[in-house]
Structures are given as structure tokens and as C-alpha cells.
Amino acid sequence: MFLNSELCVSGLSSDIQNDLIKSIAQVIRDEIKSEINFCEMSVIADETPDISHREQMSVIFRYLTKTGIEERFVGFFDVTLERGADSYRKVY
């Protein structure tokens, strides 16, 4: 019996690919959380504008494990809104 190609899932749709990426990212985040649970760690944060003049902050965790020092990239975060003149006026 031959399979109907319409019933087969190819995994090429953007929805499936995005779901896979989100699932993999969650597994990686959970692994990092379990590694740093009982470690002393430092956070490295650096901010830079991208080509569209939006401020991007990169965050990295550095910690010591039984096998040595580990560095894990956490992600880029858009911090453009927090840097405008309006945000400074709200403080004063």
C-alpha cells in the first residue's frame, strides 16, 4: 500500500519549524537552569545598536561546573524603549 503524499508531514512549513525551534530553545533553557542551580555564576551583559538603530543587549551566563568553566548565551533583548528621553523624565 502506498502512502498518500497529502497525509505525510514534511516539516517544511514555517509553523512546524517555529514550533521545533521553540521546543529546542525550551530544552536548552531547562538544561542551563539545571546546570546553574547550585553554581556560583556571573552575568555578562553588553549593549550595542543594530543596523536599524535599535539597542540590543546580549546576556551571557558564566559559571563553574565539575568539568570546568561554562559560558552560555541566553539571548538578545531589545532595550530601545528603556533608553529614550521619555523614560528619563519619568524618573525625575
Rank of each mutant, 00 (worst) to 15 (best):
Met1Gly: 15
Met1Ile: 11
Met1Phe: 15
Leu3Ala: 09
Asn4Tyr: 08
Ser5Arg: 11
Leu7Lys: 13
Leu7Phe: 15
Cys8Tyr: 07
Val9Leu: 14
Ser10Ala: 06
Leu12Cys: 10
Ser13Pro: 02
Ser13Arg: 05
Ile16Ala: 04
Ile16Ser: 05
Gln17Lys: 15
Gln17Tyr: 05
Asp19Arg: 05
Leu20Gln: 10
Leu20Lys: 10
Leu20Arg: 13
Ile21Ala: 11
Ile21Tyr: 06
Ile21Ser: 10
Lys22Ile: 12
Ser23Glu: 11
Ser23Gln: 10
Ile24Thr: 15
Ala25Trp: 03
Ala25Lys: 06
Ala25Asp: 05
Val27Cys: 12
Val27Ile: 14
Arg29Met: 06
Arg29Glu: 10
Arg29Gly: 06
Asp30Met: 10
Glu31Leu: 11
Lys33Trp: 07
Ser34Met: 11
Glu35Leu: 05
Asn37Lys: 14
Phe38Ser: 14
Met41Ala: 09
Met41Pro: 01
Met41Leu: 14
Ile44Trp: 03
Ala45Phe: 08
Asp46Asn: 08
Thr48His: 05
Asp50Glu: 07
Asp50His: 02
Ile51Glu: 07
Ser52Met: 10
His53Leu: 06
Gln56Asn: 13
Gln56Val: 14
Met57Tyr: 00
Met57Glu: 02
Ile60Thr: 08
Ile60Ser: 02
Phe61Cys: 09
Arg62Ile: 03
Tyr63Gln: 03
Leu64Gly: 00
Leu64Asn: 07
Lys66Asn: 12
Gly68Leu: 00
Glu70Trp: 01
Glu71Asn: 00
Phe73Gly: 05
Val74Thr: 09
Gly75Arg: 03
Phe76Met: 10
Phe76Ser: 14
Asp78Ser: 06
Val79Ser: 00
Leu81Ala: 14
Glu82Cys: 08
Asp86Met: 12
Asp86Asn: 15
Tyr88Pro: 06
Tyr88Cys: 15
Lys90Cys: 12
Lys90Thr: 10
Tyr92Asp: 11
Tyr92Lys: 11
